[in-house]
Amino acid sequence: MFKALGRFFTKIKEGLTKTRKLIGGALRALIGLGRTIDQTFLDELEGTLLAADIGVAKTEEILTELKRRYKAGEVAKGEDLLAFLKQSLRAELQAPDQELAWAAKGTPTVVLVVGVNGAGKTTTIGKLAARYKQQGKSVLIAAGDTYRAAAIEQLGIWAQRAGVEIIKSQQGGDAAAVAFDAVAAAQARGHDLVIIDTAGRLHNKEHLMRELEKLRRVIQKRLPEAPHETLLILDATAGQNAVQQAKIFKDAMGVTGLVLTKLDGTAKGGAALTIRRELGLPVRFIGVGEQIDDLQPFDPDAFVNAIFGDE
């Protein structure tokens, strides 16, 4: 337990230190100089925010507000600036109190996992299954990606690693049928949690999005209030397209939350800020590696502090 916890902190630190080197370094240099807030300063700050994939619109919003405060005399020094920035970003990132919206007792909680190709859906499912198994839940996972080569085998290995049961069919099988069977099996066998994998798909392919909508409808035939959560997996290395992904997946599937993967690299996943503001979707978890315990509940303080290079 303590070992796992220690490992977690090291992981987060490792991942975030790299982040810090890039962003925090730049900002610290800015602030440390005790400079006044002039145009050059603002330009540099803007570059720093943009480099985090925060996006032009959000960046401009921050800068405008900053300038307003400066003029009003509320912000004069670097420290004030940092506090303001942190606060404005953090305020937008509050996650819900619960990790997942659980179903009523006696009903399995159904979590549907969606996202573009290669985002980290299958891996995240393995990690989630292990997490809730450890918390004493009875977990079932469903190999709803019947399209990609060896996707079923891949999830099968995760099922073994997590020590949970899996429902699957053949490659080329009907994904909606697998999902339906999984929900039915969970009801019959009294599982607490069903997590359904889906094939990666680009959000601009309407026929693939329709297929996903059908999958949801089919689940609902078995359990009308399902899915209780629809998690969109986003790759932190993705740029502004992530916003478009979130918008379309949300419209089509009623996404309820995000998982930001691959935060163990140097990418910061700043698009999550825009997604939160424009679509109201909170980040639920972050992925910080390829191992089964490399999943963490999202912590807005840590996320923002990491961006600005503070512990």
């Binding site: 992530a242 140097t266 698009a271």
Partner: peptide, 10 residues
């Protein structure tokens, strides 16, 4: 990946 953001350079 064509969707890569600012991190592509690194």
């Amino acid at each position: 990946d064509a969707m890569t953001g600012q991190d592509a350079v690194h």
